[in-house]
Design a protein around this nucleic acid. Sequence first.
DNA 1: CTAATATATGAGCATCTGTTCATATTTTCA
DNA 2: TGAAAATATGAACAGATGCTCATATATTAG
Lengths: 117, 117
Amino acid sequence: MREEHVVEMDETIANYLSNEDIVYEATQIFDALSDYTRFQILSSLCVGSRSVSELKDLCHVTQSAISHQLRLLRDRGLVFARRDGQRVIYSLADEHVATLMRVGLEHAAEAVSVEGE
Amino acid sequence: MREEHVVEMDETIANYLSNEDIVYEATQIFDALSDYTRFQILSSLCVGSRSVSELKDLCHVTQSAISHQLRLLRDRGLVFARRDGQRVIYSLADEHVATLMRVGLEHAAEAVSVEGE
DNA sequence: CTAATATATGAGCATCTGTTCATATTTTCA
DNA sequence: TGAAAATATGAACAGATGCTCATATATTAG
């Protein structure tokens, strides 16, 4: 038997929903998390700062692909970069990203286990 | 001065990250929330069940566009449908969606207000 | 049964996206 | 100064996406 999930939205959230700019901005952060490569980058940065080449090794894509994705994340204010010699070190710039990933992963873990059985 | 956000990931989350299927599934729920129309549909369903035509009026797109998006959301297990006469009533099928939207909107409200000043 | 209403779906299309390739830029080291 | 290492960027392209249009399906009312 399926359950319906109806949720109380407090007034603040309801106000956000009536603001087009805020809703659009919300879709943008979800978009950032919707790509496999970017998700890997961001989850890695949740643990600590990483250079571009470290991220490249971690994500198994070319250096160019990583740099392009990092630019997108920079433009959206989700990461920031500092130079350290030849390296450029990226860090998480937004505290909400980790929360979102945690909830998204919890959902996913349930979804995958349900599908498996 | 910018702050770095480094977050302790508990072991369970770290395990999720090493599971490709779970990570992919996580990107899929973020993808669902990354489109303006779908975000409106889901936020509306957070408040309560809605028929297709109610959702259509709310989102200012064609009935066809709504139905296509509802199919995507159904296929991903985020909403479910029950028939009531001529109408089909959609409801939220996943409790995590509301949490994600709340956090995403909080992030967005900050981002928009920072950009405004 | 027939018309009307509500919803679903397939095809087609314009746009967006993520990647690769080639090349530019920046920094270090000899 | 010149080569090597690390990163950034623009162009190009294949594939994905979200929409509209036309049409199919399902339910109810007359």
